[in-house]
Every structure is written in structure tokens, then in C-alpha cells.
Amino acid sequence: MSNINAIGLHENSANQLAEKLNELLANYQIFYMNARGYHWNVKGPNFFELHTKFEEIYTDLLAKVDEVAERILTLGHQPLHAYSDYAKVSRIQEATNVHDGAECVRGLVQGYQALLELQREINSMAADADDEGTASQMSDYIREQEKTVWMLSAYLG
């Protein structure tokens, strides 16, 4: 019996990566709902600008939710799929009753910072496991989100 999975990774490494990716998936799901809530509930003089930006952000987050879940499956594991599970493991907390545009943007910055920290952890684990697929995915996300954090921070002044 081999300890190598279908894509050529050691089972132990794949298990650890899948567990960490499930944590990332939980964070993406909570963050997605936060961004969706910001989109629905933002008020104020920058409504039109922020409403459009928040839609762009939550659309991207939803795509990443699917990509992360599919990577977990590729590693031979099952993605979490219950919000109760997401709430238990997510570093990102639900945002409720947020209407102020600047507060919404600050929530986005904080959410991205949590994602970046977790993705860097996964990237390092993936590199150690010779898992180029996961490492590449995390590198792409990190590059995109660092720029987004810069832009949102510039918006806040």
C-alpha cells in the first residue's frame, strides 16, 4: 500500500494541506457573505461607487470559493460545506449591521489581511510538500489581494 495519492503527493502532506485549505474555504465563505452584505447595505455619499466595487469583490470571492473547494477535492479530500462548520473554523468574523462605506471598506481590508496570512501559511506548507498546484494557486491569490489591499487602503486615505 502506497502513501502517495493520485496526484503524486504524500498522503500525510495532502491531509495537512486539505485541512488548512478547508480553513481557508471557511474564511472565504464568511468573507464572501460579509462583502455581499456590504453591497446590499452600504449607504452614504459613495453608495454608487462602493455598491459596484463590492459586487466586483464578492463575485471574485465566490469564484475563489469554488477553486479552493476543487483544490481540496483534487488533493483527495472533502470540502466543508456547512455554514456551521465555517463559523467554527473561520478567523474572519461575520459583519452585521454595517452601513457606513468607510467601515465596510475597513472590513474588507481586515478580511483580506486574514486571507493573506492564511494563504501564506498554505503556500509555505505546499512548497514543503512539493505541491506546485496549491502553491501556485496561493501565490496568485496573494499577488491579487495584496494589490486590492493597497487600493482599498488608498481609498481610506
Rank of each mutant, 00 (worst) to 15 (best):
L118M: 03
N12K: 02
G111S: 00
Y112K: 02
Q29L: 05
L116N: 01
H77L: 09
E19I: 06
N15M: 07
I7K: 05
R120D: 13
A114R: 07
Q29E: 06
H81W: 12
A14M: 02
G37Q: 02
A69Q: 09
E94C: 08
R36A: 09
N27P: 09
T74C: 08
G107C: 12
R106E: 02
Q113S: 01
F48C: 00
L116R: 05
A82W: 14
L73N: 11
V98P: 02
G101K: 05
G8L: 05
L21E: 03
H39Q: 11
A82P: 03
A26C: 13
G101M: 07
V98C: 10
Y112W: 01
E56A: 06
N34S: 08
W40G: 10
G76W: 07
E23K: 05
N5S: 08
K64I: 05
N5H: 11
K20E: 14
I92M: 02
Q110G: 00
K88P: 04
N5W: 03
N34P: 03
N15H: 12
E19K: 10
M33I: 14
T59R: 11
A102H: 14
H39N: 06
G107W: 11
N41D: 10
N3E: 13
F48M: 07
G107P: 10
Q110S: 04
H51Q: 04
P45C: 03
Y83I: 12
M33E: 10
L21H: 06
G76C: 11
K20D: 12
K53F: 05
H81A: 14
E103D: 03
E70R: 04
N41T: 02
D100P: 01
R71T: 11
I30M: 06
D100Y: 03
T96L: 12
E55V: 06
A95F: 09
K43M: 10
A87V: 13
L115R: 08
E67V: 03
S90Q: 08
P79A: 15
N3R: 10
P45Q: 09
M33N: 08
G8S: 03
A87D: 13
L115Q: 11
V65H: 04
L61E: 08
Q110Y: 00
T96E: 14
P79M: 14
L62E: 09
E56Q: 06
K64R: 06
E49W: 05
P45R: 05
T59I: 06
A26K: 06
Q93Y: 05
E49R: 13
G76S: 10
A18E: 12
Q113G: 01
V42L: 11
Y86F: 15
E56Y: 00
E11F: 00
N27L: 09
Q29K: 04
E23P: 00
L73Q: 14
I7H: 08
N3Y: 13
H10E: 13
S84K: 11
A69P: 09
I57L: 15
L80E: 10
A87L: 15
I30F: 03
I7E: 09
I92R: 07
E55C: 03
I7Q: 11
E55Q: 15
Y28F: 15
Y32M: 06
N12A: 01
L80W: 14
V98W: 00
H51P: 09
K88E: 15
F47P: 05
L21I: 08
E56G: 04
Q119F: 04
A18L: 01
Y28M: 02
Q119P: 00
H81L: 12
V98H: 07
